[in-house]
Nucleic acid binder design. Structure first.
Lengths: 112, 112
DNA sequence: CCTAGTACTTTGTAATACAAGGTATCTTAA
DNA sequence: TTAAGATACCTTGTATTACAAAGTACTAGG
């Protein structure tokens, strides 16, 4: 048991939410997403992200288009589907509710 | 893919944190914890909680004492060890950092 | 071509939440 | 005294999924 495992656990739950949110702002490809998450200290590795993107696509929340790159192989640029946008809105609510619940449960005041 | 799965996912990451926090406020037994979590809309079932309490105890974060009940079999009342208290403090920080990271990542403003 | 860099994919493993069922203890009431 | 119901704790099997590590494929530059 160490704090890193806890951090990893907490991250898991919000990964999909953060990824959908990142994609909602701009068409991006995997490396962009990794960099954005890294900047936000939400560390994720390739082997986690790629299967997750595939899953979200198969669930109809994402779509993508191939785009040529001037510095390597072509990239998959992801965007939100209409369904993805609706889902993201629900996740916004879910996240806010979770924050409220956790802050309430963990508040120092015993009788709350 | 449905929003319930997402909620469940998000809950997972903070379960240990909430449970340690609940125990830090008062000596409680499993049913107390379940009720507190339920009140906070952090639904958990027995089959999840018991193994988790055992794990936290084996990791040295919790201890317990048996106490007779006037309305059924004896109960295990859990308390935090010194190590558990320290760990809880680290989790407080970890949770705050996560909230900051997620809110940052999912803010509507593209350039933040 | 060969090497280095970039991008995407796959495979195996470990962790763990949950559903469902099980065991043990205690109280109550006939 | 015993059967039924309630309470409390525990176990097993399954599915999900993050991660590490290794693999495949494409491009550019010398």
């Amino acid at each position: 048991m160490n704090i890193e495992r806890v951090k990893s656990q907490m991250r898991k739950g919000v990964l999909e939410y953060c990824i959908l949110s990142i994609i909602s702002k701009d068409e991006v490809y995997a490396s962009d997403i990794l960099q954005t998450l890294k900047d936000a200290k939400l560390i994720v590795v390739e082997g986690t992200l790629y299967p997750l993107l595939t899953r979200l696509k198969n669930d109809g929340l994402l779509n993508y288009r191939w785009e040529e790159s001037t510095s390597g192989p072509p990239r998959k640029y992801y965007g939100l589907t209409e369904m993805g946008q609706k889902f993201l809105q629900e996740m916004d609510v879910t996240w806010q509710e979770l924050v409220t619940s956790v802050n309430h449960t963990t508040s120092k005041n015993k009788n709350q």
